Simulated assay, not measured.
Amino acid sequence: MPKSKSNLIQSVDRALRILECFSRKESELGVTEIANRLDLHKSTTFGILNTLENRGYLCQNPENGKYKLGLKLFELGKLVEYGMDLRTSSLPYLKKLVDKYGETAHLAMRDGDQVIYIDKVEGEKAIKMSSQVGKRAYIYCTGVGKAVLAFMPEDNIKDIVKNIKFHKFTLNTITDLNELKLELEKIRKKRYCIDNEEIEVGLKCVAAPIMNYKNVSVGSISISGPTSRMNDERVDLISKDIKYVAVKISETLGYKMHCNN
Rank of each mutant, 00 (worst) to 15 (best):
residue 67 Y to E: 02
residue 233 E to N: 04
residue 169 F to M: 13
residue 18 I to E: 02
residue 236 D to M: 07
residue 143 G to V: 02
residue 61 N to C: 12
residue 218 V to T: 10
residue 249 I to H: 06
residue 150 A to D: 06
residue 93 Y to M: 07
residue 233 E to D: 06
residue 139 I to Q: 11
residue 72 K to E: 12
residue 141 C to T: 15
residue 214 K to R: 14
residue 228 S to D: 04
residue 141 C to Y: 14
residue 69 L to T: 03
residue 249 I to T: 01
residue 260 N to H: 11
residue 70 G to S: 01
residue 191 R to L: 02
residue 95 K to G: 01
residue 246 A to C: 01
residue 49 L to A: 02
residue 22 F to M: 04
residue 172 N to M: 11
residue 73 L to Q: 05
residue 6 S to C: 03
residue 145 G to L: 09
residue 18 I to S: 02
residue 230 M to E: 05
residue 135 K to Y: 06
residue 173 T to F: 08
residue 143 G to W: 01
residue 11 S to H: 14
residue 200 E to P: 03
residue 177 L to T: 13
residue 42 K to S: 07
residue 201 V to L: 14
residue 196 N to Y: 13
residue 15 A to H: 02
residue 77 G to V: 04
residue 119 D to C: 08
residue 159 D to A: 15
residue 154 E to G: 00
residue 23 S to H: 01
residue 43 S to A: 14
residue 247 V to N: 14
residue 7 N to T: 15
residue 11 S to E: 15
residue 113 D to V: 02
residue 232 D to R: 12
residue 208 A to P: 07
residue 15 A to E: 13
residue 5 K to Q: 08
residue 21 C to M: 13
residue 54 N to K: 15
residue 3 K to I: 12
residue 88 T to G: 00
residue 169 F to N: 08
residue 230 M to A: 12
residue 185 E to G: 01
residue 185 E to N: 11
residue 189 K to Q: 05
residue 250 S to Q: 02
residue 131 S to M: 11
residue 168 K to V: 09
residue 73 L to I: 13
residue 98 V to N: 05
residue 8 L to R: 11
residue 208 A to K: 03
residue 243 K to L: 03
residue 155 D to V: 14
residue 39 D to E: 15
residue 116 I to G: 10
residue 126 A to D: 14
residue 218 V to R: 10
residue 30 G to S: 09
residue 154 E to I: 10
residue 242 I to T: 06
residue 94 L to Q: 05
residue 63 E to P: 00
residue 245 V to Q: 02
residue 211 M to Q: 05
residue 126 A to K: 05
residue 94 L to H: 05
residue 32 T to S: 07
residue 135 K to D: 04
residue 48 I to N: 09
residue 39 D to M: 10
residue 66 K to I: 00
residue 223 I to N: 07
residue 125 K to A: 11
residue 26 E to F: 09
residue 191 R to W: 09
residue 217 S to P: 01
residue 40 L to P: 10
residue 217 S to G: 12
residue 255 Y to C: 05
residue 182 L to T: 07
residue 44 T to V: 14
residue 134 G to W: 10
residue 33 E to T: 15
residue 196 N to K: 11
residue 213 Y to P: 00
residue 75 E to R: 09
residue 163 N to S: 13
residue 205 C to F: 07
residue 174 I to K: 00
residue 125 K to W: 04
residue 245 V to G: 03
residue 103 E to V: 04
residue 38 L to E: 01
residue 74 F to L: 13
residue 93 Y to K: 11
residue 240 K to N: 14
residue 186 K to D: 12
residue 112 G to A: 09
residue 256 K to V: 15
residue 102 G to V: 01
residue 61 N to A: 09
residue 12 V to K: 14
residue 40 L to E: 06
residue 32 T to E: 04
residue 63 E to M: 03
residue 75 E to K: 10
residue 250 S to F: 02
residue 91 L to E: 09
residue 260 N to D: 12
residue 213 Y to F: 03
residue 157 I to Y: 12
residue 199 I to Y: 05
residue 198 E to R: 06
residue 208 A to H: 04
residue 109 M to D: 00
residue 3 K to P: 00
residue 8 L to Y: 12
residue 145 G to W: 07
residue 189 K to C: 01
residue 166 F to Q: 08
residue 25 K to D: 08
residue 147 A to V: 09
residue 37 R to G: 06
residue 133 V to N: 12
residue 178 N to Y: 11
residue 112 G to S: 10
residue 206 V to A: 08
residue 70 G to M: 03
residue 5 K to S: 09
residue 179 E to M: 05
residue 24 R to H: 04
residue 136 R to A: 13
residue 80 V to I: 15
residue 184 L to E: 11
residue 149 L to S: 06
residue 30 G to P: 03
